[in-house]
């Protein structure tokens, strides 16, 4: 059962002579409850695909379908209820003057929930922070704690798909382990579908069942994680990436 289907997705910036094609005819699909990885080096367009799905890039063509419904150029409110995103840098993704309570409360309010107080506490429990963090400001939180707040914000509308843009690359390895474990637990508890972008093959190998390798805006190979573990990648670039990562 396909949850997210991407067909012929192209993304470009600028126009005319200055046009830069960030993503060229990408195709992939993710089943309900599955976890899909996008790997590649910087500038390969892997994060741009996530931003295109969320409607954060101005120019794109192709088809993006969520639960068999194609999304329009302008995202509906129901779309944001179904799909949410966690950003790479937890130091940049929280408003510096808003407390955790404001961040989560506003998100819940915008999605039309009315039992906000109870839900804020529940969300903080879900991401392992607890109610004592509720009234803190971002500068009173560590990097890992900030990322937990960002995950709580993404979970607030009870989405079915979570897009993860390098969620641990700004964190220490011990904190990375905690966040990855949290994401594993949340996925099984809430039946979430993940699309995870990372430059770290071992992180994607740990989190995902299948993955796409990207180079210069194109998907060069899609493989399952067994193939990755057994180092049986077909494409020359995937082999090179794999060799450099071990």
């Amino acid at each position: 059962m396909t949850m997210l289907n991407i067909e012929n997705l192209s993304v470009w910036f600028g126009g005319g002579r200055d046009r830069v094609d960030a993503v060229r005819s990408a195709n992939f699909h993710v089943n309900r409850g599955a976890s899909f990885g996008l790997v590649g080096e910087s500038g390969s367009g892997k994060s741009t695909i996530l931003r295109a799905i969320m409607g954060l890039v101005p120019n794109w063509s192709g088809t993006i379908s969520v639960d068999a419904t194609p999304v329009g150029k302008k995202r509906e409110k129901t779309f944001y209820k179904a799909v949410q995103m966690v950003f790479q840098d937890p130091y940049a993704s929280l408003h510096p003057r808003h407390s955790v309570d404001q961040v989560l409360g506003e998100t819940l309010y915008l999605h039309g929930f009315r039992d906000i107080d109870a839900r804020v506490v529940k969300l903080l429990d879900d991401v392992g922070l607890g109610a004592k963090f509720r009234f803190r400001y971002p500068h009173q939180l560590s990097g890992g704690q900030r990322q937990r707040v960002a995950i709580a914000r993404a979970l607030a509308p009870e989405p079915s798909i979570l897009l993860l843009d390098e969620p641990t690359s700004a964190l220490d390895v011990s904190i990375q382990a905690e966040i990855l474990n949290l994401l594993t637990d949340l996925r099984s508890e809430h039946g979430l579908t993940y699309v995870m972008v990372s430059h770290d093959l071992s992180v994607v190998g740990h989190m995902c069942e299948s993955l796409a390798v990207m180079k210069d805006g194109e998907i060069v190979e899609i493989m399952d994680v067994e193939t990755l573990r057994n180092a049986q990648a077909q494409h020359a670039y995937s082999k090179k990436l794999l060799a450099a990562s071990i």
Partner: peptide, 11 residues
């Protein structure tokens, strides 16, 4: 990113 994040909540 934090403005993108609130846009994603439909603000």
């Amino acid at each position: 990113d934090y403005i993108s994040a609130i846009q994603l909540q439909g603000a």
